[in-house]
């Protein structure tokens, strides 16, 4: 065992997710998740979808969790969280259950959010449960071995969107998940990355305070799936924001705001060149992606009341 009394110190520092987990070396998602948990505080109940974060943290009979946590299936996390929230609410009315206010949190990857769990998420958002849904977006089915999802960006190579004579990799555009969440008219939506931890913590706290459903979308670099060095997860988050690939923003009761406005977007190449999944792309395709990213950023800017150039 460790000699630094590490676990006690981590607990004292408010960490709710303990080391000894099986996430890949340099995982950006687990880093994002522990930041999210720390910002949430200990009075939470987490419903976790099947996926990387579930499998790396719960090999029976052990757990990395210091908070109550339930995992059921891949596609039903928002529904499980609905039940947790409704159950607590009904019991509270009848004078039972935990005495303190408990924040109900559902967590899933992009596969369980964009794809298989979209229906249950939509239902939970529409019903207005007082809970926070956190999507850790690593842009593919990484737990099963790097297959494409509807979050995989155009041009990225995965095991099911491989580069071939007739294909440049993923040939579809990434689904705009925060916008889909927005279409439910929920009170709070935010995008975050682990490279901006103060911003992330602020947004998580806001999500906790606002009554009703909140949707938090967290950019979560995957060194294994994206083909990067193990030390660049944070750098990739910064670049994703600074290139406009992943705008940082929020929407409170229908009012949009960019929380980090990038006046001069960095070239997309800076972001892509660190990742093997884009390495095969020709200059033409990269230019095309560059144009799309700029156009998308312009739309986001205009929504946020920022005048486009």
């Amino acid at each position: 065992m460790s000699t630094l009394n590490t676990l006690q110190k981590l607990k004292d520092a408010g960490e709710l997710f303990m080391p000894g987990h099986r996430a890949c070396i340099g995982c950006g998602e687990v880093l994002a998740m522990r930041q999210v948990c720390k910002a949430l505080g200990k009075d939470i109940i987490i419903a976790n979808a099947t996926g990387c974060m579930e499998i790396i943290s719960s090999p029976f009979p052990t757990t990395n969790w210091n908070v109550p946590w339930i995992h059921a299936l891949f596609e039903n996390t928002a529904a499980v969280a609905s039940g947790v929230e409704s159950g607590l609410d009904a019991m509270r009315r009848k004078g039972r259950g935990p005495s303190q206010d408990v924040t109900v949190v559902a967590m899933g990857g992009d596969g369980s959010t964009f794809d298989i769990g979209l229906q249950s998420l939509s239902g939970a958002l529409e019903r207005g449960h007082n809970f926070i849904y956190v999507c850790f977006d690593n842009e593919g089915y990484m737990n099963t071995g790097i297959q494409r999802s509807s979050a995989t960006p155009y041009g990225a190579s995965t095991t099911t969107s491989p580069v071939g004579k007739n294909s440049i990799g993923q040939t579809t555009q990434k689904k705009d998940m925060p916008l889909i969440a927005l279409a439910h008219h929920i009170p709070y939506i935010a995008t975050c990355t682990p490279a901006h931890p103060t911003d992330l913590a602020k947004k998580i706290k806001k999500a906790k305070e606002i009554k009703g459903p909140a949707y938090i979308h967290v950019f979560s670099p995957c060194p294994t799936g994206w083909g990067t060095d193990s030390d660049v997860a944070i750098e990739l988050c910064r670049l994703a924001v600074d290139t406009g690939v992943f705008p940082l923003g929020e929407c409170v009761h229908g009012t949009y705001a960019l929380t980090k406005h990038i006046k001069d977007l960095k070239p997309i190449r800076d972001y892509m060149k660190l990742q093997r999944r884009f390495r095969h792309l020709s200059d033409d395709v990269i230019d095309q992606i560059q144009a799309q990213v700029r156009a998308h950023y312009a739309v986001v800017r205009s929504k946020c009341g920022v005048v486009t150039n």
Binding site: I45, A47, I70, A72, L73, E75, N76, A78, A79, V80, A81, S82, G83, V84, E85, S86, G87, L88, A90, M91, R96, G97, Q119, S120, G123, A124
Partner: peptide, 15 residues
Amino acid sequence: HSAMSACLGSAAVGA
């Protein structure tokens, strides 16, 4: 599917 999933969550908090 969500009905039974919500039941899991509800029963798991003791309701």
